[in-house]
């Protein structure tokens, strides 16, 4: 089995989906001859031609809007937004059209599109290239919001997103694009959407996270293990619709929970998960739910971004606070 990094896994999934289904098309800025600024679409233009791998003018709202029109016609467009800082104009198309076309036509028209975008900080990128807007997307009814946290999950979840009959925003953690490799079987098998992945079992405390923060959270779990604390790690993967059952079941067993994410604390998706736990695991809680997140600040420029991103130490410290609660 080939060892791939995350951006290569995305590339393989796109190629597989395009080879399997002629209705899959890729569009976005520089996705064609250039293969994308992160090379996620590398080789697709040569292999599938410029009718299916479409370089667009520099117009993010229309990239999303064109995908809506294509999807309503039964194509399966995979549109790329180059960086999350440029995803805000497409949000109009996602909120007002993509996510509600099925509802407002009572199923006559649907919108099986995927909007891919790199997200998150940690690669010393320019301003507007490092934000984590998943919570504002995750509140949109009718949309799916998916964040993979490893090459294998990126491959399987992107295939699932492309095959899904409804619109999916697929946010790829930029920091993980080339950070690690793992064996990925390019067998065309999708992973389930709307499901968490339990990455580590632990009886003492449950660490809930997604995206790039999975790396620091797993490291924190390892650190805690050395201190005699058995921490489980859950990768939420699909933020919306949420797999509440898996998270609630885990926290009912451990009674303690840390939620870690890069996006700002207030109104982050961790707040939603904490509310669900308060409602459905209240009697099992042995300590207040801890959140470790980015701050309610503008994403700092590269020289300070390490202080903003949830670190292994911050996550471990939050877990110790929960463990120490009388």
């Amino acid at each position: 089995m080939e060892e791939l990094n995350l951006v290569q896994a995305v590339n393989r999934a796109l190629a597989r989906a395009m080879a399997d289904d002629p209705s899959v098309v890729v569009l976005g800025e520089d996705v064609g001859r250039d293969g994308g600024v992160f090379r996620a679409t590398d080789g697709l233009w040569t292999r599938f031609g410029d009718e299916r791998v479409i370089d667009t003018p520099l117009a993010e709202a229309a990239i999303a809007g064109v995908a809506v029109g294509m999807a309503a016609q039964g194509l399966r467009p995979v549109a790329e937004i180059q960086f999350t800082g440029f995803i805000y104009p497409p949000i109009d198309q996602l909120v007002n059209h993509a996510s509600r076309l099925r509802t407002r036509t009572r199923g006559r028209l649907a919108c099986p599109m995927v909007l891919r975008a790199p997200c998150g900080g940690g690669i010393h990128a320019p301003e507007h290239h490092s934000e984590s807007p998943e919570a504002m997307l995750a509140q949109i009814p009718g949309l799916r919001v998916v964040l993979p946290s490893s090459p294998a999950r990126a491959y399987g979840l992107l295939l699932a997103a492309i095959r899904d009959p409804d619109p999916v925003v697929f946010l790829e953690p930029t920091r993980l694009y080339r950070a690690l490799r793992e064996p990925v079987d390019d067998n065309g098998e999708a992973l389930p959407l709307d499901r968490c992945f339990v990455l580590r079992e632990g009886k003492d405390i449950t660490l809930v996270t997604w995206g790039a923060t999975v790396v620091e959270t797993l490291a924190a779990a390892e650190l805690l293990a050395g201190e005699g604390i058995a921490a489980g790690v859950i990768d939420v993967a699909t933020l919306h619709p949420l797999d509440q059952e898996t998270i609630v079941a885990a926290v009912r067993r451990t009674g303690r929970c840390v939620i870690a994410h890069e996006a700002p604390l207030s109104g982050g998706w961790g707040a939603e998960i904490a509310a669900r736990l308060a409602e459905h695991a209240f009697a099992s809680l042995l300590a207040p739910i801890q959140r470790v997140a980015g701050y309610d600040t503008v994403m700092p420029l590269p020289r300070l971004e390490a202080h903003y991103l949830p670190s292994t130490q911050r996550i471990a410290a939050a877990a110790r606070r929960a463990m120490g609660f009388a």
Binding site: L75, P77, N96, R104, R108
Partner: peptide, 26 residues
């Protein structure tokens, strides 16, 4: 059956026409 419902957010639907047209073309 394939006509779009009316567009209320003003002017947000011309990109949809381009997408529909590109599906026809493809």
């Amino acid at each position: 059956r394939q006509d779009f419902p009316i567009c209320i957010p003003v002017g947000s639907h011309p990109p949809h026409a381009v997408g529909v047209a590109m599906a026809f073309k493809l």
